[in-house]
């Protein structure tokens, strides 16, 4: 029974909320603040620029490789520190990083996303920052991305995975 429960939980979401205690109202403000800071970095480092993504795929600038690479290095060091020092979350819970299991979708889906990334010049995060920056036409791209997500959900069980 426990195993079934765990599996169902894993299916729920790809970036799951593993915090046991609930959060409502003001407790959510901290995510808003973090999101704002994140959005500012996206714009100031020009990650939201279609041109920067083109440079990345054309190998004419190191910028995006530097951004993603140094973000990963920072992430690796941080997670190792959290694990080794046994750092807990502010609500006192043990920090939980769910494992990602290999599926064929990471290959097919990853490739399909790559095609879209080069066209739109944006992965999902920058889409939101582009809209906030005044490129309101990107609302259409976002709606289309939501439609794409829905279509995947509709046919998920029929696709090789």
């Amino acid at each position: 029974m426990k195993v079934v429960e765990k599996k169902a939980e894993g299916f729920v979401c790809d970036a799951p909320n593993t915090q046991a205690s609930g959060e409502k109202g003001l407790a959510l403000v901290k995510y808003l603040i973090l999101g704002i800071l994140f959005g500012i970095v996206f714009v100031k480092a020009e990650i939201i620029s279609w041109f920067r993504i083109q440079e990345m795929f054309r190998l004419t600038s190191f910028h995006m490789y530097g951004v993603i690479g140094s973000a990963i290095v920072t992430g690796i060091i941080s997670i190792q520190l959290i694990k080794r020092l046994g750092i807990k979350s502010i609500s006192g819970e043990k920090i939980n990083i769910p494992t990602k299991e290999f599926r064929k979708g990471q290959i097919y889906g990853g490739f399909i996303f790559g095609l879209g990334w080069a066209l739109t010049g944006a992965c999902p995060g920058p889409l939101f920052a582009q809209i906030g920056s005044g490129f309101t036409i990107i609302i259409i791209t976002l709606l289309s991305a939501i439609a794409g997500t829905w279509v995947y959900g509709r046919f998920a069980d029929k696709l090789p995975n």
């Binding site: 944006a122 791209t141 976002l142 439609a147 794409g148």
Partner: peptide, 10 residues
């Protein structure tokens, strides 16, 4: 946009 949404979820 569709490719981004479909691909990332897949």
């Amino acid at each position: 946009g569709f490719l981004v949404g479909f691909g990332t979820r897949y």
